[in-house]
Design a protein around this nucleic acid. Structure first.
Lengths: 106, 106
DNA sequence: AGCACATGCAAAGGAATATTAGCAGGTGCC
DNA sequence: GGCACCTGCTAATATTCCTTTGCATGTGCT
């Protein structure tokens, strides 16, 4: 037991976008940096950055800024291992720690 | 094994709403009809109906119209058992059957 | 200087969601 | 008839999300 119901909802919301699923899938095969990942997934870099931010905000990926040998700053992303067993019973327990306030996404 | 990546995304999108999680949680404790469920969850019936429709469209719940002893039409909902093990590896396999349609402007 | 590559961010428009309010229908009971 | 229940729909609003476009920074190489 580690996450609140709100955290779960945030994770599910984050993974409810095909682009972000593909990003996680790509990173599951190994870490990568933004520009290259954008080329491999064939999406714009700006779009990828937005999705990466959401994934990181949800705790699904981590980033690390590194300097390549030729001095260029490159931001590497990698997946944080996670495991959620989605069942009605699990949702029932998660619902106990769920706030319903309006304008809550944050 | 059974669902496409698109189906998975749809399920996750459906469960990425606190109201719908609470609905599933409530139904996990037993079937119920719309008006009563709305009272128990303390939300408007119109709102609940919208969420129930989405849950049913995603295949997470089922509905059945029944007649009470006193002749009133009552729509009962119940959860369809489901089990999704959410991991990076699982997403990687799901991503293979994921449509993105859209021109790719590089 | 100019090109290729890396990063970041903000504004703007369109699309999709969430929620409310209000209407319609039905039954049975006092 | 008038309540108290049940069901269903729509239109209109507010809000959030998605995506593109554009500009800013920096590096190294020719």
């Amino acid at each position: 037991m580690c996450c609140t119901g709100d955290d779960l909802v945030r994770v599910l919301a984050t993974l409810s976008n095909p682009h972000r699923v593909r990003v996680v899938a790509a990173l599951a095969g190994g870490r990568n940096y933004v520009s290259r990942l954008a080329r491999e997934l064939d999406i714009s870099r700006a779009l990828l950055q937005v999705h990466l931010k959401k994934l990181e905000a949800a705790g699904l990926v981590s980033s690390r800024l590194e300097l390549s040998e030729d001095g260029k700053a490159m931001k590497f992303y990698e997946v944080n291992p996670f495991s959620v067993h989605l069942t009605p019973e699990f949702l029932a327990s998660a619902a106990e720690t769920l706030t319903i306030e309006k304008g809550s996404p944050r």
